Simulated scan of single mutants.
Amino acid sequence: MNVLNRWMVAAGLCLAACSTGVLAGPVMDRVQSQSVLKVCIWPDYYGVTYRHPRTQELVGIDIELSAELARDLKAKVEYVESSFPTLIEDLGQDRCDVAMYAIGMLSQRMEKLAFTQPYLRSDIYAITTKSNAVVKQWSDIDKPGVMVAVQAGTFMEPIMLQRLKSATVVKIKLPATRERELVAGRVDVFMTDYPYSRRLLDNADWAKLVEPPEPFSVLPYAYAVKRGDDAWLATVDAFVSRIKADGRLQRAAGHHGLSAIVVR
């Protein structure tokens, strides 16, 4: 069963529920009673939920769209810092009502969380340095001795561990970063997705993008909520349907350079 079919089974939503927009349920009751929507974000996700290091301003497609969701629910948005390694715990412990930072719909996450329909999708890309003599094209990556970095907890980690047969996968855990490891020469290349690749190409003159010659591992992104509250899932899913239909998704994607990966 593919990921999209798994989403439909896991969601268990009827068309009538999805069309109503707001349904009663524990999370919705709390949001309405407190007039606050708690949104988990990862503030280092360029183009998605990114805190500018100089201004400290939060920007990105899901900063814009989370404000739209809060406006639709007549609530104010409250951001809760999260990360991919802590995502399941943060939702499970009710630290936030919804995770809105382009959550990849991985099977292991879908077993623990409930997902809306996808709104973005991305393949895997490689970043190396322009001066790197080891990796110049995609076919250079999976070779003996090549050190391939992945951010721990991201969807790239299990995929690269499975797909690479000769290269060595290096898991990068915070506070270490893939960029520092690459520039220092401790790895030859790191794997990332479309939004994060934009960060390097926009801001680092040393960065070189290596694209797969054909689709490598395209993954849909969605919003995630705690399992067990189907009414809240239907409410957030209905929001995704609305922003696809009324143009808000496409406009927000255009503001942040992500139009190419929108799921229409």
Rank of each mutant, 00 (worst) to 15 (best):
L4H: 11
R6W: 01
M8R: 11
A11F: 04
C18Y: 01
A24C: 07
P26G: 13
V31M: 04
S33H: 00
V36P: 04
L37P: 07
P43V: 01
R54F: 11
T55C: 08
D62P: 03
S66W: 00
L73E: 06
E78S: 04
S82N: 04
F84M: 13
T86M: 11
D90A: 08
D94W: 05
C96I: 13
C96Q: 08
C96S: 09
I103R: 03
Q108T: 15
M110A: 10
E111K: 14
K112R: 13
Q117C: 04
P118Q: 04
P118K: 03
Y119V: 15
D123Y: 02
D123V: 02
I124K: 00
A126L: 04
I127V: 14
T128W: 02
A133P: 15
Q137L: 06
Q137P: 03
V146I: 12
M147E: 14
A149M: 14
Q151K: 09
A152G: 13
M156D: 07
E157L: 10
K171F: 09
P175T: 10
P175K: 09
A176Y: 10
A176N: 12
E181C: 15
G185K: 07
V187M: 08
D188Q: 08
D188N: 13
F190M: 14
D193C: 09
N203P: 05
A204P: 01
V210W: 03
V210S: 05
E211W: 02
L219C: 06
L219N: 04
P220I: 15
Y221N: 13
V225A: 09
K226A: 11
D229Y: 05
V236L: 00
A238E: 01
A238V: 03
K244A: 06
A245C: 05
D246Q: 02
L249H: 11
R251P: 01
L258E: 10
A260T: 04
